[in-house]
Amino acid sequence: MDVFSYFNYWVVVVLMMLGFFIVIARGNLVKKLIGLNIFQTSVFILYISIGNVSGGAAPILEEGVALYSNPLPHVLILTAIVVGIATTAVGLALVVRIHAAYDSVEESEILAQDEPC
């Protein structure tokens, strides 16, 4: 079971890197935001995995249950998800305005328009 004890963390790293790759290698601004979302979710998975206790119940107190998952990462991630969607909305709003100003959401085309003659 030694490999499985790190499986979650490795998946987190893989997801994080896939999101990172989308952010740096794709030119489309909406795609970049999707990549950022994957990156963000990988951090959520990391926190929740750290908070997991084998055989632990969901942290809702109950008679006769002694072992619970760690509630603190749940609190942090629960609020982070809602903050994440609010900030993603700000990013998407900026994309809409960039499209209105440049008529494109491709990074290379936007940079080309910005270059001084």
Binding site: I48, S49, Y68, S69, P73, H74, I77, L78
Partner: peptide
């Protein structure tokens, strides 16, 4: 859900 983080 499988991690017991039902609120999340």
């Amino acid at each position: 859900v499988t991690m017991g983080a039902v609120d999340v």
